[in-house]
Design a protein around this nucleic acid. Structure first.
Lengths: 340, 340
DNA sequence: TATTGTATTGCAATCGGTTGCAAATATTGC
DNA sequence: GCAATATTTGCAACCGATTGCAATACAATA
């Protein structure tokens, strides 16, 4: 009780005049130990305030019951929602969750991967930075058969499972919706094209244009960091275009909202002059006026599914046969994209 | 290279014809090892792809280099920002971060505390649930001299350090601001009063009223979960009051915004009919129209400071002499609270 | 009673790194 | 050249739980 001494199975063994081996087995209900002995062991353990030493166990078992997660940033609505879903599943399954941020830089992502490797995580969940172009930094883990699941911002690799939405389809849906509202000249605000999420949304945008027989105009695609500053900057570019567009499809809500606010200040009417569609369904989408049409993106579920899949893979101790898991998305039509 | 064999210091020792002890010392720059030997050891380690086994180290050192964090929910703007700050410091200092959510329930908080104890974290960062009334579930950790720092939602205990803002003063500032705009009948939308954050903000609200010689009217205080539903509900109660209030001070932004939206639908003009002040400075505060006056709450810094203090305490291996650390807050005046 | 079978429990090695102390080697001084 | 000191390195015992195999106890069968 004085906080100095740590109770071990040896202490219990001594007290009960048994061997540590028996105590160890008794504590985990090994059938070879007589029921009554098991009960005595457990009671004594409880009484003496015994706590299993995970290091000793892990050292033997070569397992950590720990799952790692590497993401660009925690503090976005979408990402914190995903993590919440992950944590829910992971904790319910008796694993711990170690989190690290790559701060959107490749170097930090590499460092984090090394740390995770050293921490001997049993599995890893990763959402890549904008600019990650290869996954060599995960090689060490993969060689040791530690399963890695990429979610949202993924990398195509035959040994890993990806959990995503169909970004191409979503980009198509968003753009087609604008086209169906009679919009013809549509700006696309998108992120770094190295990353699947943005490359695919752009692809969908182009496909929708093509299906409607509208020529693709590269000058209407604005690549930027998709944050508040990016949205404002995009609005300024928008205002300088010779022929003013009548639609905007932004690859996330925060840039869409920032852009909207800037356009409103400039006297542009939404949706009369410009119809806008965002992406993510952040809470701000229902606060901005007019409310923002957007693609609903199931973050919590994505987290749950990624975590569940990872844990299953760990238990089966073989690479999952699933290569890609595609979740449903949904276009939520609100006032920002009504007909002219 | 085939992913089966793990390189240990024994392998390195054998290869260099040294003892494992020398290798162990060499790897961590023990001065008793000749510089040249150290270099050889490190090079060989690198070459063979050696990775330190943390369990073995931890088992001996009885340290984990891991910090735990227990919070009600990850997925709020404020909390994810705090965590981001924590992660930044913790990772820079070479620690890992284990996260768990109490989902705002006392039972889960107890379970999480036990898990953290079993994981042998070196220190713990905690933000309590609405209803936590004692900290007996942290006793086991405290007895083992594992430092705990509470942040934001804290509990007064002489053995722990708290990192907070002056909620009483902030509540006072917010209320006084409304009073100075000529508002006289002010509703206070607040959370569960067991928690310091809300109890103190209410206290500040009352003090401001008193300083202006206005009687405290209990019917104007609405206690609710401070989420979107809570904000809407509060708006409905507001609309049913006999004498309509002319000000609202909400204890967070999301409920304030939800409430505003509902009031706007009911035809109430903001700020003409009702002036509103929120709390937290969430991004939505600058999106809602009119922009929401609010208390800026330094989440990222709070996380950094809590983590830094914790790590210092761990290094000094004695309880910190600091009992409470109070951060600055700031009233940001926007359109939602202009004079009538 | 001797033998075979079954239920319990213990022995001892193992996981991989750390560290007090002793031993071996190198360096210095006289 | 030899003792004395300083520099390097190794031995072996930990840290605490796990587990294959052996050993013991006890019951059942011939």
């Amino acid at each position: 009780m004085d906080g100095k001494k740590e109770v071990t199975i040896y202490d219990i063994a001594e007290k009960l005049d048994l061997s540590p081996a028996t105590v160890s087995r008794g504590l985990k209900d090994h059938p070879a130990i007589r029921k009554e002995t098991r009960k005595r062991i457990k009671e004594t353990a409880q009484l003496m305030g015994y706590q299993n030493n995970l290091f000793a166990s892990n050292l033997r078992a070569k397992k950590t019951n720990t799952i790692g997660i590497i993401i660009p940033r925690i503090n976005s609505y979408f990402m914190s929602t995903v993590i919440s879903g992950i944590e829910h599943v992971v904790n319910a399954q008796g694993y711990s969750l170690i989190i690290s941020q790559s701060q959107e830089t490749f170097e930090k992502e590499i460092k984090n991967a090394t740390t995770m490797y050293n921490s001997r995580v049993d599995g890893l969940l990763v959402s890549l930075t904008y600019t990650t172009e290869n996954i060599q930094h995960f090689e060490a883990l993969l060689r040791k058969r530690i399963p890695i699941i990429f979610f949202d911002r993924v990398f195509d690799d035959p040994t890993c499972t990806n959990v995503v939405i169909d970004n191409t389809k979503a980009g198509y849906d968003a753009t087609m919706h604008l086209l169906e509202q009679g919009r013809r000249r549509i700006v696309h605000l998108c992120g770094h094209l190295t990353r699947n999420t943005y490359a695919d949304r752009l692809k969908g945008y182009r496909m929708a244009l093509q299906d409607k027989g509208i020529a693709y105009d590269e000058s209407l695609v604005i690549v930027n960091p998709l944050n508040e500053a990016g949205g404002i900057e995009a609005a300024q570019k928008f205002l300088q275009l010779d022929i003013r567009p009548d639609g905007i499809f932004a690859a996330n809500d925060s840039s869409a909202v920032a852009c909207m606010q800037e356009l409103k200040i400039a006297g542009i009417r939404i949706p009369e002059d410009v119809a806008i569609v965002g992406f993510n369904n952040d809470p701000i989408a229902r606060v901005i006026e007019p409310n923002l049409t957007t693609i609903h993106y199931p973050g919590y579920e994505m987290g749950q599914i990624a975590a569940t899949t990872l844990i299953n893979t760990i238990h089966n101790s073989r690479t999952s046969p699933i290569n890609t898991l595609v979740l449903k998305h949904e276009l939520l039509v609100r006032e920002s994209s009504s007909a002219k």
